[in-house]
Nucleic acid binder design. Structure first.
Lengths: 341, 341
DNA sequence: GTGAAAGCGCTAACAC
DNA sequence: GTGTTAGCGCTTTCAC
């Protein structure tokens, strides 16, 4: 009987038909997938852990690109993709325990995220995307955030910018909407933000800009609105800034909006840059660091699903590319630091 | 022991700590979620069935809006969201059988979709979004597509348009990239498309335009590229058209692109309209019929999750709103039908 | 507060 | 090709 459903080739066609017909008549709804999973020790699904609320997966364009690639990989392997419902505030980890999955993909969470720690306790393989970095025995796929931002910084300093300000995403647990002081910068628990800031610091140091003097505005929420608001704060406090470096395209989109509202011409009056390479950013001509978002998702899925042979953790670093578009240009003549123009 | 994990309140705190500590020492990874699901008859997840490839969920802005709302509802109920991997071509229904879920949300599939039929055989509640319509014993949430399109049609005829062309999505199984003839129109298996076309037909009939003379171009793929291509086909064959009505914003975005490439000014040279009300459409000033996408997803989730009392099928119809923006205007003077301007 | 036992529905193995 | 059986890991119940 089990064979009729699971191994059609083991029975003769007419017999199979007969069995199935009888089952239908008896009102048998087909094998229970949960019972089968218990028996075969396969859930047929991959769990996805996001640090944010579930709906974030469909709102953030960088996440969306990643997930598209991940979904592609799952699809090809015939695996489902289970979005695990985690409340970002609640420290309720039961959802992770409830998830009937054969493995987890963890997308860009804090180093000390309790949900992530719960995932590690589950006896299933795990692949991390982006962060945390350097977790014992866990595969990871990411990009060289630091090198990407360094390239961007050099582009800006090459244009002549010296007075730059930064808009960045959440740096650690807890709400901190405002300037990130030295103490905050020393306790970053989101490695990606740390790396991107480090790349910028290095690039600015090459032309003698003191990192201590660079204003950094942090936002808890990651949305264009937050970027817009942060840009207002930054330019309000530091009107002499010639370039606003954002650690994501989403924030940069908001900064562009603020510039427009304020009547500032981009890039003539001010340069604004992003990071990620989202379709939205491209559409509006945002200078940014592009990373292969979809590819990252695909690789994450494949690492998890194809882990037949290897058992030592793998780390894949995908390339980034500086995309110079129309949101960056030299600072105004009177604001330039040197005058070889 | 089970109590230690599941009912912390039933034990004394120190005892609970002792048990958990012992379990950890023994290398016990916590209760197996699948076994628990089998026992409790609760999977803790909602299945999502899309007619398209899984990754489509993250690519189509209308789907994304819906899913954001659905994810929100799941999250609030502490339920996971399982994306069921269906290959659109393959008629392999096993993925539906494998899915360990407490219910299904079916998003906009064909009336005779085999995966959908497989869902109906599963002994779990199901909620349909948009289509199919009128399925015995199944809850549904949607919008009044016909009325929405009728309002749009009246807007266009009011502006003076008489020679309109249509770009529409897939109408039935099978690839048909090209004109939809009478036979094709008579065998539509996507009710949403049928309704939207009917609304347009009704609106045009009010001013005496013969539906038979309205060219309709169908595309299998639903993407801006397909819309662009279809617009080229439409305007190539019918250069006298003054308005291109698209049955989705995504297609309209492509049509706008085509118009731009061809050097046509919108709306001076040609009017282009969409349907859905996506952020992208809004950004570019697309005249369209807005529907509450996120709300639709939320309602779908809630209908599935809160089905405590009711057991007769519910049908929720959400309102649409005509959004007149900058992509629609009167036809050129020499092309107008009447001249009261 | 503890321990033992039944059974959720299935698959895989083995005897017929 | 058919029938029987053990057991996946859990929760629930009931006796202690």
């Amino acid at each position: 009987m089990s064979n009729a459903y699971n191994r059609p080739d083991q029975l003769s066609a007419p017999l199979r038909a007969r069995v199935l017909e009888a089952a239908r008549r008896l009102g048998y709804p087909g094998p229970d997938p949960v019972a089968r999973s218990l028996r075969t020790r396969k859930a047929g699904a991959v769990g996805l852990l996001l640090t944010e609320a579930l709906s974030y997966a469909f709102r953030d364009p960088a996440a969306t690109g990643f997930l598209e690639g991940l979904a592609l990989a799952c699809e090809q392997a015939g695996q489902g993709l289970l979005l695990v419902p985690v409340s970002p505030d609640h420290v309720d980890v039961t959802a992770v325990h409830q998830a009937g999955v054969d493995g987890f993909v963890v997308y860009s969470v804090r180093e000390d995220d309790p949900h992530f720690l719960a995932v590690l306790e589950r006896p299933v393989p795990t692949v991390v995307c982006d962060q945390p970095m350097n977790v014992e025995g866990v595969d990871r796929v990411g990009v060289d955030d630091r090198a990407g931002m360094l390239a961007l910084a050099r582009h800006l300093t090459g244009l002549g910018h010296r007075r730059v300000g930064v808009l960045c995403m959440r740096l650690a647990a807890g709400h901190n909407d405002g300037p990130a002081d030295a103490e905050r910068l020393a306790s970053i628990t989101y490695p990606v933000q740390r790396e991107r800031l480090a790349g910028l610091r290095d690039g600015l140091a090459e032309v003698g800009v003191d990192w201590e003097t660079v204003p950094i505005i942090e936002r808890f929420e990651h949305s264009p609105e937050a970027g817009q608001d942060a840009a207002a704060e930054l330019l309000g406090a530091h009107p002499d800034i010639t370039a606003v470096v954002c650690t994501s395209d989403v924030l940069a989109l908001g900064a562009l909006k603020h510039a427009a509202d304020r009547g500032l011409k981009v890039p003539d009056d001010i340069t604004i840059t992003g990071f990620d390479g989202t379709p939205e950013g491209e559409r509006v001509g945002l200078t940014t660091v592009e990373q292969p978002l979809r590819e990252k998702g695909r690789v994450a899925g494949e690492m998890l699903l194809e882990r037949g042979d290897r058992n030592k953790p793998r780390h894949v670093l995908l390339p980034t590319e500086l995309a110079v578009r129309t949101s960056s240009g030299p600072p105004r003549r009177e604001e330039r630091f040197f005058s070889g123009w």
